[in-house]
């Protein structure tokens, strides 16, 4: 089963981190990649640019409205994601605990809807 891991973190707090602290975070992600890679379960994953770069688009009655900023203003913002193949939710929860973002932010696990089984 595929699960999407949405990593939410406080952008403002991230921006104030020192070079050393950022180095530690990158190191932690490197360690996760090192563990995840060989399993062949990593189907995808990226870090995102801050929400200051976000653009939201809504089309209503054929009319497109394009606005600056993310879909919702929240205390923690979407900062990255993984797509991982897991046996079940327990395995997914274990991977989530290993994502560094879950230690100072929140990781939301979403099972991917399998469209191939729908008739």
């Amino acid at each position: 089963m595929k699960y999407l891991f949405l990593i939410y973190e406080d952008e403002a707090a991230m921006a104030t981190k020192s070079e050393q602290e950022m180095g530690a975070i990158f190191g932690a992600y490197g360690a996760l990649e090192g563990e995840l890679g060989p399993t062949g379960k990593r189907l995808g994953g990226e870090a995102l640019q801050p929400t200051a770069t976000a653009t939201s688009v809504r089309v209503r009655n054929g009319e497109a409205s394009i606005t600056d900023g993310p879909f919702a203003e929240t205390k923690e913002q979407l900062g990255g994601f993984y797509l991982i193949e897991c046996e079940n939710l327990d395995e997914a929860i274990q991977w989530a605990q290993k994502i560094p973002g879950s230690h100072d932010g929140t990781v939301e696990i979403r099972p991917v809807l399998d469209l191939s089984n729908l008739t």
Partner: peptide, 10 residues
Amino acid sequence: RDAAIPYAVP
């Protein structure tokens, strides 16, 4: 069912 919560003893 949809999130595949396992049917297992931890």
